[in-house]
Design a binder for these strands. Structure first.
Lengths: 125, 125
DNA sequence: TTATGTATTACGTCTGTCGCAGTAATTAGA
DNA sequence: TCTAATTACTGCGACAGACGTAATACATAA
């Protein structure tokens, strides 16, 4: 399971990714994220729909109503060119982030009990 | 440059990483993050110090005053065993996150103008 | 005396996520 | 037929983390 603070900042991009090929709607996106992440991340409804609003406000997607006659009416979202550009940009940022955050990882063994205690001596409280 | 929303959720861990070997203090940590990330990420003072407060509240670090006689008095922070455990946990989470987020990345060429338009036909607004 | 670097703290704002709850429609089952 | 489950979306309020701005405090160099 992934905590929301860690995944935060990627929600918009995940949604855009799922819109690259065809328009889609909330519930469907939700299921796809769950499936693609192998249940490791489940986006909450409110998070998802507020993201749609944000994306639309920024011109990254446009919305339209589906014409299905049964079930509750769906709101579909279609990615715009601006949205595609934003998506690409965010992908690049991801590579940089990976690189940077990776520098703050230490091999498990080294970060543990036995090791990493050599500095524990200059406290002067 | 990395936006804060993307790095959010890693601030605590970056700080803990820099405390693994020896206690340190705000200003120093700040410089180290800047340097280690090769200027790609600069943690704001307020972010940093509020993180210290959070970490201490949660028992991941303890603080003590330095006894330097010149300059403004420093507050040093030392990682606790609980903090080390938390750090290790967060490192594992990072691997999972990398894996999951990676699934929402598409090769640049494919995400662009030319490609990825095959679905752009079933709009019914 | 002014500016610069070191080092920390206060206050208020904004954004994104979430919990909880509710609405609305269809279908399946007892 | 009543009920529950599934699909699909929305509203409201709370909260945490990051940030802008600014102040404080000390030292040193120009």
């Amino acid at each position: 399971m992934i905590s929301s603070d860690v995944i935060r900042g990627y929600t918009d991009r995940m949604i855009l990714y799922l819109l690259l090929d065809q328009p889609s709607y909330g519930y469907e996106i939700s299921r796809q994220i769950r499936k693609l992440s192998e249940e490791k991340y489940v986006m909450k409804e409110t998070t998802l729909y507020s993201a749609f609003g944000r994306l639309e406000k920024n011109g990254y997607v446009t919305s339209f109503y589906g014409n299905e006659t049964n079930g509750k009416r769906r709101t579909y979202y279609r990615i715009t060119e601006k949205g595609r550009a934003y998506y690409r940009e965010k992908c690049e940022e991801w590579h940089v982030t990976m690189e940077v955050v990776g520098k703050f990882i230490r091999a498990e063994a080294d970060a543990g009990y036995a090791a990493g205690r050599k500095g524990e001596r200059d406290g002067n409280d």
